[in-house]
Design a protein around this nucleic acid. Structure first.
Lengths: 218, 218
DNA sequence: TGTACATCAGTGAACGCGCGTTCACTGATGTAC
DNA sequence: TGTACATCAGTGAACGCGCGTTCACTGATGTAC
């Protein structure tokens, strides 16, 4: 709330005051428009109204800025997923379907983050923070999987890690192939969210987690 | 078999004789190494031992070469899938699991094709041939889905299109997240192929297509 | 079989461009006394 | 409260680079007669 940091950007003096944040915002805009490779350091600087050398005060190089965007993306992703999961309330299945919708909503509404996270080729060990943020996001999926699995009788429980990987793979597949803002490459008879929800229902049915605990009853 | 087209490349005269093919090969190599954006027209020309202006005799521009690579990729993909499916022999389930393995094998063994097809941002309507090749590949998945669905009693059959989209999404998700030659970004307790096979088994179980036709029996 | 000619598939030099990055610099800010 | 000084976060000019693309050209090939 220090008003020095919140002052309007337009009439600025020699110092910008908030350049790092604004470079990240510019990068997000450029990635969203032209993909992760369409983003350039020089143009981000231009968008922030700053000389091309200025970004180097805040990021070692272009890669580091990209990794920072990916890290923030995973943090926002994790937050969105855990908000949707809401500790599995009111029951794990309802929460799980919210989770799926939240996954697609994130990919759809934040394509720049999503593509920095999964498509820009940023190695996960570009920084400790990135790795940690990515791990925390995945841990959320795994936790939800565990809660669902816990409903099954002890002898019939699949490994939670495997289930989490399946959930992630199908979500990512639907998001990448059909869930982009541009409508994807192929017209669908249903929305990406509906497609994922149906797929997840069938998958859960296959595990024996269904409306009646038995697939044949659906 | 015309020996004029098969003559060795090294000591060539003014005319190359096979430049188009060699440019495509060079592009595949570059994309495989550095991703679809790491590929440049100029470098492809250099690799083919030709001046930077030569490629323009065969491709309108860089985009057209990329689209050509994607088209060839879809053709090879379709061929690999339909070879694996083998008209559903000996039975649809066995054939279906071969199909899944073939999908992952293609993504793994032909990362350059796969990424030109799905990650390079080539619009599907860049050319008629591209669209047609992509459609034929997808039709293969759909056909397999139909054969499996046909085993269910009439009242319990899901739409084949939806099932095909689910299969595609999970396959792509597994391939994109875990199936790359570089081992992916995250160590797995099982191979990508095993992960996909397990996921597909659970999904089929959910549809009621299982070893005994009933999920609870597994 | 030979010759004239059209067409094809290369050359090589040049262009303008924007990029990432470096450098010595300087204006603004924060701190110690 | 003032002043000296260190540090911070910008500037702007410059660099080398490789790219995509165009251009007039030329050597090789194929074809008609």
């Amino acid at each position: 709330m220090s008003w020095k940091r919140d002052r309007p950007e337009t009439p600025r003096g020699y110092h910008h005051g908030n350049l790092k944040e604004e470079l990240v915002k510019a990068a997000l805009g450029l990635i969203g428009e032209k993909g992760p490779n369409g983003f350039t350091f020089a143009e981000a600087a231009r968008m922030a109204g700053v000389s091309p050398a200025a970004p180097y005060r805040h990021f070692r190089d272009r890669e580091e800025l990209l990794a920072d965007v990916a890290t923030r993306g995973f943090q926002a992703f994790e937050a969105a997923l855990s908000r949707a999961w809401d500790q599995g309330r009111p029951d794990p299945e309802a929460a799980f379907h919210r989770l799926g919708r939240a996954y697609l909503a994130f990919a759809h509404d934040e394509p720049a983050y999503y593509s920095a996270m999964f498509e820009a080729g940023v190695p996960l060990d570009a920084s400790q923070e990135l790795r940690a943020a990515a791990d925390r996001a995945f841990a959320g999926l795994r936790q939800a999987s565990e809660a669902l699995i816990a409903q099954l009788p002890a002898g019939k429980r699949p490994p939670a890690l495997m289930m989490a990987l399946h959930v992630w793979a199908m979500s990512h597949g639907v998001a990448a192939l059909f869930g982009r803002a541009d409508g994807g490459r192929r017209p669908l008879p249903m929305s990406a969210a509906e497609l994922l929800e149906a797929g997840m229902l069938i998958y859960l049915q296959g595990l024996g987690i269904g409306r009646n605990g038995s697939p044949d009853a659906g």
